[in-house]
């Protein structure tokens, strides 16, 4: 009695538990302690600590890696909300460093340059929970099979354009809905077509949703963008370049937090959309060459 229990199932349950606590909130990309403070004061439920926001990574080119541990630690010391950080796809040594640093969530992210073109990190090996991006149901279930405790759409990071996040969220929701209409005898063929673990396909067919929280990321720049993906089924939102690439980060951050909470109340959405300075300029998808698109990284 009154004893700590430590099994794989419990380890996974407390990881998903933190993802549950972040629902209905906005998670913001920050590059230093000052930005982290602005995000926390605006009501962010977590921050993602990274050296360069996606729009700048896109502009600068080169290899994008895990951020400097000292910079992440300074942010951990500044805010009381959960601090997340990114590792490269498949780079389990970066993930080990982030776990030793005691970050609260690791994003195995396509925004950084992939380290392994075949394998993602085996996330069940870690005590810290992972979030991963997906563009469709099969990809989401593969990541959950590896131990991801939270999923997010990939969208197109650093574009300021919501169109890809909408495409990915709609694809995921449509595929999940379709599974609920199928007979048991059809599910193995679905698992084969999607390249997804059979037991997770069965879970989705029964419940009509993922077994872990499902958030949206990639291109959210306005309060209305946040409300849009929430209405399409995102349980919370990640805002990357949208806040600190705008002309009024604090006001925009506050507005996006409110829009995420009151996503289905147009009167409040109108109120929080007023009086903001211009948002980030953003990119039309045709301006981004195929080989520079981030969403195609990982599989």
């Amino acid at each position: 009695m009154n004893e700590k229990v430590d099994t794989i199932q419990d380890n996974f349950a407390v990881k998903v538990g933190l993802a549950e606590m972040l629902k209905g909130g906005a998670i913001m990309d920050v590059t230093n302690a000052e930005q982290a403070k602005i995000a926390e004061d605006a009501g962010a439920c977590a921050v993602m600590a990274l050296e360069r926001i996606p729009a700048d990574i896109r502009r600068d080119g080169g290899v994008a890696r895990m951020s400097d541990p000292d910079m992440i630690q300074e942010i951990q010391q500044t805010v009381s909300i959960p601090v997340m950080a990114k590792c490269r796809i498949g780079h389990f040594a970066e993930a080990q460093v982030l776990q030793a640093l005691e970050v609260d969530f690791i994003d195995e992210s396509e925004v950084l340059t992939p380290a392994d073109e075949v394998n993602h990190v085996y996330k069940h090996d870690f005590k810290v929970p992972f979030v991963c991006g997906a563009t469709n149901l099969g990809e989401a279930l593969r990541r959950i099979g590896e131990g991801a405790a939270m999923m997010r759409t990939k969208g197109e990071a650093g574009s300021g354009n919501i169109v890809e996040a909408v495409r990915h969220m709609r694809a995921l929701q449509d595929e999940m809905k379709r599974l609920t209409t199928l007979g048991q005898e059809q599910l193995m063929a679905v698992a084969k077509d999607h390249g997804a673990p059979y037991d997770l396909v069965c879970y989705v067919a029964e419940h009509g949703k993922l077994p872990v929280p499902n958030f949206s990321a990639g291109g959210i720049a306005t309060p209305a963008d946040a409300a849009l993906v929430r209405q399409l089924g995102a349980e919370a939102v990640f805002v990357g370049s949208g806040i600190f690439k705008s002309d009024d980060p604090a006001a925009r951050a506050t507005a996006i937090v409110k829009a995420t909470t009151h996503y289905d109340d147009p009167d409040i959405l109108l109120q929080v959309s007023r009086g903001l300075q211009p948002g980030m300029k953003g990119l039309e998808m045709s301006e981004i060459p195929e080989e520079e698109r981030l969403a195609v990284r990982g599989w």
Partner: peptide, 11 residues
């Protein structure tokens, strides 16, 4: 922090 999150059987 999250690395210290846990489950326990309580009375």
């Amino acid at each position: 922090r999250q690395v210290n999150s846990f489950t326990a059987d309580i009375r």
